[in-house]
Amino acid sequence: MTLVAIGACYIDTILTVPHYPGEDEKLRSSSLCRRRGGNCPNTLEVLGQLLQHGPRTEGSMLNLISVLPSLSSVSSNKIQEGLGILVDIKNCIYREQFSEPASSYIIMSQASGSRTIVNYNELPEMTRDEFASAIEPFHAASEVPWFHFEGRAPGVTIECIHHIRSRFPEALVSVEVEKPGRLGLQKLAEAGDVVIYSKGWAQSNGYTTAEECLRKQMPQTRRASLLCCTWGDEGAAALEPKTGNFAHIPAHTSEQIVDTIGAGDTFIAGLLYGLIYRSKDWDFPRRLEFANHLAGLKVTQEGFKDLHKVFRLGPY
């Protein structure tokens, strides 16, 4: 199965500090880390590990569509290296007049465990026509791809989904509904076959639990076959609108939390792995359990290295 993930790619600079600094305060960082980030690139990196080390991976293809600087730039080369051998970026949209990718500056507070993120991106956003050109090579493939959207720039994203529906009528589309206050995410949810809501978005819309979010979203997402909502240390919930089946899985937090950056992206990697590559031998509670276990494992370590060890820790 071919998976095409569409979203922004960042270079993250992460500063770990004892507490979040006040205005005009001078503070010494205890550590500094630079690594590639972005929702979809993170998800694909983890999926690449799962496909490389897990069962039932024959013929799997992972593709990123993102706006990147020049194809020959040092940044684009490093992004490809960091994604692993199973992730293809040849269909990305390259801005040849730019040499620097989008950047995120993240302050991690040891006192609260919170993270504060400041983004900078001078690359012009993807257009619907550019997206249509980028995915055209997949039309000649023998398999219909699965398309996954970050939920960025909802106005353009909904146009891209409409294009998929006309050009790839049998394709499945999953969408992330994550950022609180971002206009247009509800329309993306209504257009998706699989919808993943964040706790932040749910709370900003008045929902007090993951289950409440899913049950109240169900009448508005008539196309969806699966709705999922993550709720931090309270785990995650999933609902199949067409059957009414519901499951809630507690969070895996048995070890000390080290790094929460990318935990949601890791959860989505686990969920997509279960939906796309283990559809015949896992029911949806098992897929949810695997995604939760994988995300729980991620927060106990820095970065995404060797998360495929989850296969040794559970009945997967």
Rank of each mutant, 00 (worst) to 15 (best):
E211V: 12
F246A: 15
R278L: 07
G264C: 05
G192V: 09
T260Q: 09
I261W: 02
G200N: 09
V195K: 06
W231F: 10
S198R: 09
Q217S: 14
N245T: 13
S204V: 05
A251N: 02
K216I: 03
L226C: 05
I268Q: 08
R222A: 14
I196C: 15
A238Y: 06
L271Q: 07
G244I: 11
S198N: 01
L272C: 04
T243Y: 06
A236H: 02
I196Q: 14
E234S: 03
E255W: 11
A263D: 05
L227C: 01
A202K: 02
A269Q: 03
A251R: 05
K199S: 09
Y207Q: 11
A210P: 11
S225D: 09
T230W: 05
E240D: 12
A210D: 08
K242C: 04
E255C: 10
P219K: 08
A247L: 03
G206R: 13
M218D: 09
A238N: 04
L226R: 09
T266I: 03
I196E: 11
R223C: 08
S204W: 01
F267L: 03
Y197Q: 02
L227N: 08
Y207I: 08
L272M: 09
C228H: 14
F267P: 05
G235T: 03
F267S: 02
G274Q: 07
E255I: 06
E234P: 00
I268L: 11
H252F: 03
A247M: 04
